[in-house]
């Protein structure tokens, strides 16, 4: 229920920081989940087959 006299638009603008802050805390992935995201990325990288002579990039423009 919105307070009387406050439009939905104003509520969206001014209440957003509070609501979003609370929302972020509720949705926060714990560290193990973040770790598993990195592990999932590593699996995708592992699927790329590389010739042994490919060295890590040391220049970062194509």
């Amino acid at each position: 229920m919105k307070p009387p006299g406050l439009t939905r638009r104003a509520l969206a603008i001014y209440a957003a920081p509070v609501l979003l802050g609370a929302n972020a805390k509720a949705q926060a992935p714990p560290v193990p989940r973040a770790r598993s995201n990195f592990q999932a990325a590593a699996l995708q990288l592992a699927a790329v087959k590389l010739p042994r002579n490919i060295e890590p990039a040391t220049r970062f423009e194509a």
């Binding site: 770790r35 990195f38 990325a41 590593a42 990288l45 592992a46 790329v48 590389l50 490919i54 060295e55 890590p56 990039a57 220049r59 970062f60 423009e61 194509a62």
Partner: peptide, 18 residues
């Protein structure tokens, strides 16, 4: 906790991306 081997793999693939 990202292993060095994963970072190096990413940077080796980056050589191919370039």
């Amino acid at each position: 906790d990202i292993p060095a081997i994963d970072y190096l793999k990413a940077m080796r693939i980056r050589t191919l991306v370039r």
